[in-house]
């Protein structure tokens, strides 16, 4: 490979240097800020964590206070009552009424008959037929010819685009 001209090389490096944010002082940042490790979570993890926490809160609530009274509990009675009070509060907040959460505002599956329409997996046209072998929907005889000559795995990819593929777990 021919070496790039030094001038061109330099100018690009200069451009990168001018864009680079590392050497720019950021006085507005707290120098003592220590982000928690493993703070990056995806939605699935966050939702799972939240529901687990909720379940455990419910469990402690059911296990303590009203259902199993502990007369004369030692230690710091003040602390206990404060903890119990917050638990009751959070319980109240939950049972207060329906609250919009990330998961419960998701739209439910359609009940409308119109959503049963079938479209050709290859062309997107209306599909009156289904190939029993590949399970692909197709528009006419010509498309069927194409369906039958699809390469290995292509049919599955078409199904995946429609969300009808087989998922091995």
């Amino acid at each position: 490979m021919a070496p790039a001209t030094p001038a061109a090389d330099d100018s690009h490096q200069q451009l990168l240097d001018s864009l680079d944010l590392i050497p720019v002082p950021k006085p507005f940042r707290n120098p003592n800020w220590n982000p928690p490790v493993r703070r990056n979570k995806n939605v699935k993890q966050i939702v799972a964590d939240a529901s687990r926490k909720e379940a455990s809160v419910m469990a402690t609530q059911n296990n303590s206070g009203v259902s199993t009274p502990q007369p004369g509990a030692g230690g710091g009675p003040d602390n206990v009552s404060v903890a119990r009070a917050t638990q009751n509060l959070s319980g109240l907040a939950v049972s207060d009424g329906p609250v919009a959460t990330y998961t419960n505002i998701e739209s439910a599956p359609s009940l409308h008959p119109a959503s049963q329409k079938r479209y050709c997996d290859l062309t997107g046209l209306l599909a009156p037929y289904t190939d029993p072998k590949t399970r692909l929907r197709y528009h006419n005889k010509e498309i069927f010819g194409v369906v039958r000559t699809l390469g290995q795995g292509a049919a599955e990819q078409y199904l995946e685009a429609r969300g009808a593929h087989v998922v091995l777990k």
Binding site: L111, H112, S115, R162, G163
Partner: peptide, 27 residues
Amino acid sequence: NVERIRVPEVVFQPSIAGLDQAGLVEI
């Protein structure tokens, strides 16, 4: 060609793309 209307249509008919949710108008 068909993609020109097929893709934006999904908001109205999510089943096209295999999304098991009701469409915009139904909601």
